[in-house]
Simulated scan of single mutants.
Amino acid sequence: MLQYDVNLSILFTELPLLERPAAARDAGFDAIEFWWPFLEAVPSDSEVDRFVRAVRDAGVQLVGLNFFAGDMPGGDRGVLSWPGRTGEFLDSVNVAVGIGAQLGCRTFNALYGNRLGGVDPGEQDDVAVEALVLAAHAASRIDGTVLIEPLSGAPRYPVRTAQEALAVIDRLPGRTNLLLLADLYHLAVNDDDVDAVITAHTARIGHVQIADAPGRHQPGTGALPIHRHLEQLEASGYRGWVGLEYTPHGPSADSFAWLLAEQRAGLPAGDAR
């Protein structure tokens, strides 16, 4: 049975960030993930300590964490490919890997970054590859994996399909801890063939995220065949986490009715708490 986690950067946002892990636990989940949970690439030691303590005190597992992605509310979608910001990105990698070492998180997402006006796209791609080499090496110290994610809704973001993400990864042959983050919502909205992606590339998927479309709300509010896609993933051998990364239609705690209690807790079917 697939295991589900809650992305607490988009769910339970009605609560302060450090209260969200406990809220996820109260909703029946054993695992969580976050985008970059700090305002800057290098938070203070006390900020990191408070974050780690909040996750531990809630008794949940952190299974996914984004690296620093710039000013997300302002439209940034990563700095991996931005000339002049590699040092900032790699500082966040070291922070994230340190958090992962403490909390057992081994999966990290590196958002590629928007195209920049006046900068050669080829230069940006070379910057991204150089930074990915170093990020993947840093993650390997704790047997971690770095993910590349196609995104929708960001016109200047150049990685929109699974094949484009895999093309980035393929520029680093032999690096086994670089995988695809398959967000089924983003792929579908970008007109990627989700069924074909699952059929051809399940072995290269390191993490899955879901939301329905249109609207990016919980499954059942849109038209995507999410349950069929998840069944196909499981049948194809996917054994990783499925992150709930949707904007809840209504209160966060009321948006999980589509998911059985044992699925929230990652228990065998019929073993609800």
Rank of each mutant, 00 (worst) to 15 (best):
M1W: 01
D5F: 08
F12A: 03
E14I: 07
L15P: 05
E19C: 07
A23T: 12
A23D: 12
A24W: 09
D26A: 15
F29T: 11
A31D: 06
W35V: 04
F38E: 02
E40Y: 02
A41C: 01
P43V: 02
P43I: 02
S44I: 01
D49M: 02
R50T: 00
R53G: 01
A54Y: 01
R56V: 01
R56E: 13
V60E: 02
G64R: 04
N66Y: 12
N66F: 08
N66E: 14
A69G: 10
G70N: 02
G70E: 02
M72W: 10
M72T: 15
P73V: 05
P73S: 08
D76L: 04
G78C: 11
S81I: 04
G87V: 13
G87S: 12
G87I: 11
F89N: 06
L90H: 15
V93Y: 04
A96Q: 13
G98C: 05
L103T: 03
R106N: 14
F108E: 12
G117H: 10
G117E: 14
V127P: 06
A128L: 07
L132M: 13
V133F: 04
A138Y: 06
S140E: 15
R141E: 15
D143I: 05
I148L: 13
E149I: 12
E149T: 11
G153L: 04
A154I: 11
P155W: 12
Y157Q: 06
P158D: 05
T161Q: 07
A162C: 15
A165E: 08
A165I: 04
I169L: 11
L172R: 05
R175K: 10
L179R: 15
Y185P: 03
Y185E: 06
A188N: 01
D192V: 09
I198F: 06
T199R: 15
A200L: 14
A200M: 12
H201A: 10
G206V: 05
G206Y: 03
I210Q: 07
A213W: 14
G215W: 00
T221W: 01
A223Q: 13
A223P: 00
A223Y: 00
L224S: 00
L230V: 06
L230C: 10
E231F: 00
Q232I: 03
A235H: 05
S236W: 00
V242H: 02
G243C: 09
Y246C: 07
Y246L: 09
T247L: 12
P251W: 07
S252Y: 10
A253T: 13
A261W: 04
A261G: 03
E262G: 08
E262S: 13
P268I: 10
